[in-house]
Design a protein around this nucleic acid. Structure first.
Lengths: 298, 298
DNA sequence: CTGTTAGCGCTTTCAC
DNA sequence: GTGAAAGCGCTAACAG
């Protein structure tokens, strides 16, 4: 009553008494990279709208390789649910979460025994590649992230599989020389692009596994004074902030909606709704036509 | 002893008993934008290295204007310190933090009564503009963020002031038509660039208040078939991921180091080190020469 | 249905 | 020094 004068319940005390933390842990590598930053913003916003807090847990990956291991025990009594952004947790880590009884929802991949929100990455690769095939290209390369980067989860492999499937469906056997990997960044894309364009028989089109890699491929083309799309067509994946500005044709994914939905699933599970515990949602992607892909020589 | 088999202290209980939360609140607008995403990553990483948690508090700003108000009471007993990313808190909000006894460190601006880590934004504007002057330009425009966007704090005004000061120092009176504002984004920069380039007497050089705005200006130039840097020189601010790829000449700021230092100051203050309570750190910036700025017609 | 009481799992203080 | 006891501010279970 009179407590209107600035009383706020102590979350700490009520947590200790009830066991409910009103907090969701958000596990993410690279909080600074575009995809993760967008997803973090979306998840945090949705949690906050519902009175929950977002506990950010970054999982550093040193340049030399293996990422930091995540200690689920660390979360005991500190979160009601966990949202995992595109990190392939080990069996041990998953078991730990299960043992703590923390509902977990993955964004970017589906994992048995946990909820997930993702896109169909095979379809992504197929969509991009089919578009290039329809434009008349046959020498179509794939630029993917570093397969050793544990963080890449299934996205890289699936997008690549879609690329292969589309080519084979058109009776084209994917050329191993046209399948290159680098970092999942613009610099990685540039290096991959340079490799491809210096081949004796270079591709006329490139499907890049992310928009940032596509930017790198575009830079590599510019370095060689190749015109885009006349000499080289490029298709990316994501719907990055700058894609429109650059005129990049890309397979756009709804990052914000994936993040918001992941948060909602986490909240529902935290609220004890067992029904949704096994939910797997696949969101649609859409090909956005811009200026980097066209028929050869057009 | 035998508790080696998976015992972790309950943070909740120890918080309740001791009053120490081992958590730092990170208040930020737009967690998805480049600068903020980088800073969040740096702060979180530094906190984690020291056993502290990062509680992410997003402050949404609806498109129609005023941002969400931040309720300091909300943080009572939930954080030991606060890091504020580039949000100009109101006097009320600051008082609230002070009343709660929460040490606060600002990133991107200095505020009386709180610690801060920032760059010298006036120097940023001056450095960029002087570089363009030295290249022989005299018609130098400024593209800044939306002055109504509360979130812009002092950075926008200071960078603009540096631009003016440099011009006047060279005996050039800043032309109001050369001083345009938009969103602090690539699209905003593009709109501003279009406005500038459609002037009867367009500028030959542009100082953009952020790299993302600079990308927009570059796009506007390309739309008009202007060559960069032959017809138009552009200098940005930040050291954005893609600046190197694009060849953007820019005044680079150490975002990671600002974030890490802010976290360290917050930790020190949380640990009760009154000595640093009033610390204000200004970090150096550096002009990185690339391909978007040159002498006219070169 | 309202009022009371026993903890939640620690930290810290105070005896011993 | 080591060990017991008193809370931290709530929630939930229990009486009344």
């Amino acid at each position: 009553m009179a407590a209107e004068l600035g009383y706020v319940v102590s979350r700490t005390a009520s947590t200790l008494a009830s066991g409910r933390t009103l907090t969701v842990a958000l596990i993410t590598p690279f909080p600074g990279r575009w995809f993760f930053a967008q997803a973090i913003a979306a998840v945090e916003s949705e949690l906050r709208r519902n009175g929950y807090d977002a506990l950010l847990v970054g999982l550093a990956q040193p340049a030399d390789g293996h990422r930091e291991v995540f200690e689920p025990e660390t979360l005991r009594g500190r979160a009601d649910a966990v949202v995992v952004l595109t990190v392939p947790l080990t069996g041990h880590e998953l078991d730990g979460l299960r043992r703590l009884g923390l509902p977990t929802v993955f964004v970017g991949a589906s994992v048995a025994g946990a909820m997930s929100v993702r896109i169909d990455d095979v379809a992504v690769g197929r969509t991009a590649t089919e578009h290039l095939l329809q434009l008349g290209h046959t020498r179509i390369a794939h630029v993917g992230g570093d397969p050793n980067e544990l963080l890449n989860f299934t996205a890289r492999a699936d997008r690549r599989a879609g690329w292969m499937a589309a080519l084979r469906h058109s009776g084209i056997e994917p050329d191993p020389a046209y399948d290159v990997s680098g970092m999942f960044t613009a610099e990685g894309g540039r290096a991959a692009g340079e490799r491809l364009l210096s081949l004796p028989d270079p591709p006329t089109a490139v499907f890049a596994g992310s928009d940032e890699m596509a930017y790198g491929v575009l830079a590599a083309a510019r370095d060689r004074s190749l015109r885009v799309p006349e000499d080289l067509s490029v298709v990316g994946v994501d719907g990055h902030d700058l894609a429109d500005l650059v005129g990049l044709t890309t397979v756009e994914q709804p990052v914000d909606r994936q993040g918001a939905l992941a948060a909602q699933l986490a909240l529902a599970a935290a609220g004890g709704q067992q029904a949704r515990h096994q939910e797997h949602v696949v969101m649609p992607v859409r090909l956005v036509l811009r200026r980097t892909a066209a028929t050869l020589g057009s």
